[in-house]
Write a protein that binds this DNA or RNA. Structure first.
Lengths: 202, 202
DNA sequence: TGTAAGATAGTAATTGATTACTATCTTACC
DNA sequence: GGTAAGATAGTAATCAATTACTATCTTACA
């Protein structure tokens, strides 16, 4: 039974911290997550956290790095090997929703960071995440135009904004209803409208 | 110069309080707005606020009531007298964006309230606001199907979700860029895609 | 190889700052 | 002159961060 060894190497302890924050954000307002709550969730004393992070801001930075890495890897993997750009976009869409359903705290944290007025490291991480996300979308949209799947007159930037907005709309509906499962039901129906909006007339 | 009379009747003071919170939310994280900051913004001492509100929660409730009332009135007015349901939806869309551009703190506050785990009066107010918003959309979508403007096979619920999500996507892009003006530029381009997604094939 | 010394990780208690809220005194206005 | 509104000066609770000390792991060397 080595499930809860008291002493952990620093990097492992940092990883556990990040996972704790992600878990806590799934059931409470991220801005109200205290260092004491994080420590309690991982069976550690509050002060010990500061052996591994210089301050609370650094914890949030590590968390957002975790999110960016995982989310981008997930959507990249989902689109891999799919020939049709439109099908690839749909796969990205679905895997993004899947990721959010697995980690309901993620959109909460991202919204929370973006609301921040000051430019914290965590906020900057979210910004680059969305930028990278946008780059992937732009590539697919261009490919879709070239292949004739997407309307040649389509506005790339607007299409990318709407792609992300569509996901956000779904996420917010689930926040409203407090029901993550609902999202799964609505995903294909909402994406169908989006697809119709960007597809070339057949 | 009676711009700043020291003594105000209670109802006027409450109104000024609400406007102060809305203004402050435009430049900082709503969850970090303290009663001291509100009081300072309206040239009042912190303690005096509690002559007019029993507690801070009541301030937030009043603010969200203000938002719900104004936003619904605004979109209702914008759609009034427009025959075409699709044109009415577009007018609603534009006036909503206009409202947000005038009060950039509003989406911040709404996101913030929805993230809350507990069911506060303010959160419930946001929920009913979005519910009422959805009812208006559903009516228009039904009318649009009847008139032949909208695709008869359109999924009402999905269309409403996407309508709100589209606005959210735009708002988030402006939060990301820290540039509200950007929103105005993108609005028509993004709505064009949405329109194409719900319109009946011509 | 065994062990002493140092490095790493954790505990428990405390600090100063900040917060929402309150009690008491003061002023302005009908 | 009485009352509604505001100023002043608190309180108790909470928070991130720090501190002195302890436990555990790692490594160098006799």
């Amino acid at each position: 039974m080595d499930t809860h060894p008291k002493h952990l190497p620093a990097d492992e302890r940092r990883a556990v911290t990040v996972e704790s924050v992600v878990a806590l954000a799934g059931s409470q307002n991220p801005s109200e997550i205290t260092t004491a709550a994080i420590a309690k969730h991982m069976n550690l004393t509050q002060g010990a956290l500061f052996r591994h992070f210089p301050n609370k801001e650094a914890i949030w930075q590590a968390v957002m790095e975790w999110v960016a890495e995982r989310l981008l890897a997930r959507i990249d993997r989902s689109a891999q090997g799919i020939e049709s750009p439109l099908a690839a976009m749909e796969a990205m869409f679905m895997s993004h929703i899947e990721f959010v359903a697995e980690h309901p705290g993620v959109p909460r944290m991202m919204f929370g960071e973006l609301q921040r007025a000051e430019s914290t490291p965590a906020k900057r991480m979210v910004q680059t995440l969305i930028q990278r996300y946008g780059e992937r979308l732009h590539r697919l949209i261009e490919k879709g135009k070239a292949s004739g799947e997407l309307s040649p007159s389509l506005d790339n930037e607007a299409a990318a904004t709407l792609f992300i907005g569509t996901i956000q709309g779904l996420v917010m509906q689930s926040l409203l209803a407090g029901d993550v499962g609902r999202m799964h039901r609505d995903v294909p129906r909402v994406f169908a409208i989006y697809r119709r909006g960007i597809r070339s007339a057949q």
